[in-house]
């Protein structure tokens, strides 16, 4: 679950980040923006009525504790789940605070990297990078609580979403680290050479997916969203071994900005490439 957002808050943004954003804004004479949008994305974000303001970054290096699972039981490893979730929240919040400092309406093209480092891979590095943008005519685009919107949609998808009568509110996430039970010896022997379903695996994957998806949906409901687009569920063992896996659901929560959701009629083209 995300921590509540207070506009103007600088929770955990180090001095060098605040100073750096001031340096960008304070350059005499001209406003210079830095953006990781491709040329086509840049064109579409501008065509949608927005100007890019700058590159924003949220990061958090987190020490992940240790939890020894009960080998023969399907269970959520709450210590690990609870480490990944606030670390992501910290990184996202810092990125949002940077966007707020720049006076942005939101951040598009957010990429979230997770990598494991250090002794025994006990460190998790969370990095969120995106381009802060602002509407040229000052239409409100922030989330209901004043939080700058975030979305992992590309510039192309952002343009299409607005044309279709929706706007992004927030990048919503849910996760669950789950331990899949080992099979007992007796069960393994009784199943040798037979076609059988490995029910503990099937069941564990369902449970873990459901928990992750439910948590993502709860975040979207807290943002009063109408739906989630581009949702995907990633699974990754992050080096915990073959019986422990993290399910991570991520998507962009959207709200309608108009009654009708009709696109202009697309032209049909037949590309003569390839």
């Amino acid at each position: 679950m995300r921590t509540p957002y207070a506009p103007g808050a600088r929770v955990g943004l180090p001095d060098s980040a605040v100073a750096r954003l001031g340096e960008n804004r304070g350059r005499p004479g001209r406003r210079l923006f830095t953006s990781d949008l491709s040329v086509n994305e840049f064109l579409l974000v501008r065509a949608a009525g927005f100007d890019p303001l700058g590159l924003v970054l949220g990061t958090s290096i987190y020490h992940i504790g240790f939890q020894f699972p009960r080998l023969f039981q399907n269970q959520e490893l709450t210590v690990l789940t609870q480490a990944m979730s606030p670390a992501r929240d910290l990184a996202m919040t810092r990125m949002e605070e940077e966007a707020d400092l720049l006076g942005a309406d939101g951040v598009v093209g957010v990429r979230l990297h997770v990598a494991r480092r250090g002794v025994g891979a006990s460190l998790a590095e969370f990095v969120a990078i995106g381009t802060a943008i602002r509407h040229r005519e000052g239409k409100p685009f922030r989330a209901p609580d004043g939080r700058p919107f975030t979305s992992d949609l590309s510039g192309q998808d952002f343009w299409t979403l607005l044309r279709a009568g929706y706007r992004p509110v927030s990048l919503v996430m849910g996760n669950c680290v789950y331990h899949v039970a080992l099979q007992g010896m007796a069960q393994a022997i009784s199943q040798i050479g037979r076609n059988v379903e490995l029910q503990n695996y099937t069941q564990a994957l369902y449970d873990a997916r459901e928990l992750a998806l439910t948590r993502m949906q709860a975040e979207a409901e807290a943002e009063q969203a109408e739906g989630i687009v581009g949702a995907e569920v990633r699974d990754d063992s992050h080096g915990w071994g073959s019986h422990t896996v993290e399910f991570f659901a991520i998507g962009t929560a959207i709200v309608p900005i108009s009654e009708d959701h009709e696109l202009p009629l697309p032209s049909l083209v037949l590309p003569l490439t390839g």
Partner: peptide
């Protein structure tokens, strides 16, 4: 960093180092 069973927590000094590096590179 060296204790595997230390509780979940942020290593704030490493996080801050990234912002410091970002500031110099971006400027």
């Amino acid at each position: 960093l060296m204790r595997l069973n230390a509780p979940n927590q942020e290593l704030t000094e490493v996080s801050e180092a990234m912002y410091a590096a970002r500031r110099l590179a971006l400027n």
